[in-house]
Design a protein around this nucleic acid. Structure first.
Lengths: 335, 335
DNA sequence: ACCATAAAACGAAACGTTTCGCGAAACAAA
DNA sequence: TTTGTTTCGCGAAACGTTTCGTTTTATGGT
C-alpha cells in the first residue's frame, strides 16, 4: 500500500533506525545518504506524521483562533501565517469564534484536544483566563492585535496609539480643530488605543477634545455610514473626520458620496486599513495602513521559535508601525 | 503525564480492549459503561487522535483549499464548513492559493502529505488534472462554486445563470433595454455563467445584446469603479447596470456616488453578494444574494457522508438558488 | 600491523490506540 | 440440568515511527 520506512530499509539494505536517523538529520555515510535518497524518490516515501507524532508528541499542527472569518483584516493575517508555517511543514487549523466568548472557549478546547503544537490567538476582551490556561498548559502561544493584562506572553501588536496620533496630528497641523473620530467598541483593545492616540494628540497640542465628536461604532459598514451622518449633523460640523477601520471607512465613504458631501472641501478625511481605497476614491483618500503581512510573519516566526523550545527573550512584545498615506482628502483650514 | 486508555483500564479494572470498545460505541454492560464514564470524567481522559489515526489511517482532518483568504465570499463559506465539521470532531486545515495554479498544486500536495480524510476545493480554472488526481487517490472530494469538466465529483454550485437571468429579467420587465453588465474574468466558471444568464434573457425576450455594454473586470473594487465609469461614458449610456460580485459592486457604488450619478434616475442598479448594502446605500440597493451558509453546510454534509464511505447518489450536484432582493434602485422606463 | 577512538549502523522497546479471534458468562429454550 | 445462542470481556498483535544502548565499521596515529 503506502511505502514506509521499512520499505526504504529493505530497498537500501540498511536498518530502520538508520533511515530514521537520516530523516532526522543524523550522521549517515555519504554513500548511504545517496542510496536512501534514491529509495525515497523511487518508492515515493512520505513520513507518516501520525506515527512520528505518536512517538514525539508533536502534531506539526498549529491552531489559529480569530474573532471572525468575515473580516479581511483578520483573514489576511491568517493567510500570511499559514504561508509561513507551511514552509516549515506545519498545517494551520483555522477556527473563528464569531466574536462569541463561549465559542472561543469551545474552539480552544477543540484545539487542545487536537494537541496542536502551538496557538495563535486574537483574544476576545474579558476572556483573560483562557489565555492563562493555555500558558499553564505549556502550549506555545502568540497573541495578536489584542493585549491581555497581567500575562507574560509573546504578542504582536500594531502601534495603534501612534497610528491615531500621527493621523490626527496631520489634521491638526493643517489647522483642523473640530475633528470627528469614528472609533470601535470600547471594550476592544485596539479601539481603545486608537481613541487614546486621538485624545493624546489633542492634549499635546493644548487643545480640548469635544466628546460630541467621538462616535462609537461596531466596526461594521453600517455604523460607519450612520455615524458619519451623525457627525455631519452636529452644529457646527467637524472640519475633518478620522475613521478607524476598513468597514466603517467604506460606510463613511458611501454616506459622504450619497449626501454630496465634498472631500476635502466640506470635510477632510482619513480612513483605515485598505490601501486600495487610496487609488479608487476621488479625491485620493488618506489612509492609515496596517502591516498585515508583517503581523502574520512576525507571529509565525516567533511561534516557530517557541515550538523549537527556544525561549530567548520571552516574552517578546512586538509593536509594528502603521503607515500613513497622505493624499488629497485633507485640506488646510484657517486657524 | 497525560491519561491514556491504560489508565482508564486500571481505574475500572476492565481491559484495554473493553475501554476501546466502549469508545467506539461497542456493546458494554450498563454497569461498566457507567464505570468507564466516571473514570473518563475524573481522570480527564482524551483519546489520542494520533495513536488512533495510526491504527485506523484516519486523521480526522479535512483540507479546505480556496483561491483567496481575502475575499469574503470564500471565507464565509469556510467559516460555515469549519463549524459543521467541528461538530463531528474534524479539524479544518485552511489553505489559500492566492489564485495561483502552481501554489494550488503545492498546497494540495501538502494536504495529501498530511493525509487529510477529505478535501473541499474551489479549483482554479485549467488545473483540471489536479482534481482528477485527488479522485484517483480515493480521497473524498467536494468541489465548490466552480465546475470541472469530464469529472465525476460531488459539487456544490450556485445557480449563477438563473441568478443573472432573474435579475436582468426584472430590469427588462421594467422597460430597460440598454443594460450594462460588469462581469468577472471569462476563464472563471461563475463569471461565465453569470454572463450566460444575462445573454439568455435577452434572447428569450427577443432583444439584441449590445457587446459594448459587457464589461469584463477582475472581481476587485478597482475594476468595478472604472468599468462603471466606462459604461456611463458610452453614448447613449445604459439605463441600468448589473454588477456581478461584491467587490465590484462596492467599486461601482463609489464611482456612482462620486460622480453624482443618481440611482435610479440616471441609472438603475443591481449589485451582488452583500446583503448589508441593501440597508446602507440610499436608495436601498437591489442585490443578488448568494446562499453562503447553505453552500458551506451542504459541502460539509456531503463530505462527511463520503468520509463515512457512504457513496449514495454519487456524484451529487447541488445547485443552490440565489435570492434577488428588489429594492429602490430600479426604476421603470418607457419602452 | 596494531590499538585507540570516533563514526556509523543496528536491534529492540516504546508511543496509545484498534482489531481479531477466542473464551467466559449470561440467558433462553428444552 | 443440559444445550444452544447471544453478549461481553480479554490478550496479543499491529500501525510506522523515534530513541537508546550496544555493536560494528571506519579512521588515524604510531
Amino acid at each position: 500500500m503506502t511505502t514506509t520506512i521499512k520499505d526504504i530499509a529493505k530497498y537500501t539494505g540498511l536498518s530502520i533506525s538508520t533511515i530514521s536517523k537520516y530523516l532526522n538529520g543524523g550522521n549517515v555515510l555519504e554513500r548511504n545518504k545517496k542510496l536512501i535518497e534514491e529509495a525515497i524518490q523511487t518508492l515515493d516515501f512520505k513520513v507518516n506524521e501520525m506515527a512520528r507524532g505518536l512517538r514525539t508528541n508533536r502534531t506539526m499542527t498549529v491552531g489559529v483562533l480569530i474573532p471572525s472569518l468575515e473580516n479581511i483584516f483578520f483573514t489576511s493575517i491568517v493567510s500570511n501565517i499559514e504561508s509561513m508555517l507551511l514552509k516549515e511543514g506545519y498545517s494551520t487549523i483555522v477556527c473563528d469564534y464569531k466574536e462569541d466568548p463561549r465559542l472561543e472557549e469551545k474552539k480552544l478546547q477543540f484545539l487542545f484536544d487536537k494537541m496542536v503544537d502551538g496557538i495563535v490567538l486574537m483574544p476576545v476582551p474579558g476572556n483573560d483566563n483562557l489565555v492563562k490556561e493555555i500558558i499553564a498548559r505549556g502550549t506555545p502561544l502568540v497573541l495578536i492585535d489584542r493585549l491581555v493584562n497581567d500575562v507574560d506572553c509573546d504578542v504582536v501588536l500594531v502601534d495603534n496609539l501612534n497610528a491615531s496620533y500621527n493621523a490626527v496630528e496631520q489634521l491638526i497641523i493643517r489647522g483642523h480643530r473640530r475633528i470627528g473620530i469614528i472609533v470601535g467598541p470600547q471594550n476592544i483593545y485596539t479601539a481603545q488605543e486608537r481613541l487614546k492616540g486621538y485624545i493624546r494628540v489633542f492634549e499635546d497640542y493644548g487643545l480640548k477634545v469635544d466628546p460630541n465628536l467621538i462616535k462609537y461604532g461596531d466596526y461594521q459598514i453600517e455604523s460607519g455610514y450612520h455615524l458619519l451622518l451623525e457627525l455631519m449633523k452636529i452644529d457646527p460640523p467637524p472640519t475633518a473626520v478620522y475613521v478607524t477601520n476598513y468597514e466603517m471607512t467604506i460606510g463613511s465613504i458611501i454616506a459622504i458620496n450619497e449626501n454630496n458631501i465634498r472631500i476635502p472641501d466640506d470635510i477632510s478625511f482619513i480612513g483605515f486599513d485598505n490601501q486600495d481605497l487610496t487609488r479608487i476614491v476621488k479625491p485620493a483618500l488618506s489612509i492609515v495602513v496596517q502591516p498585515v503581512q508583517q503581523i502574520g510573519e512576525t507571529a509565525a516566526k516567533i511561534l516557530l521559535k517557541r515550538m523549537r523550545k527556544d525561549q530567548k527573550g520571552f516574552p517578546v512584545v512586538t509593536r509594528l508601525k502603521t503607515e500613513l498615506l497622505l493624499r488629497d482628502s485633507i485640506k488646510k483650514v484657517e486657524g
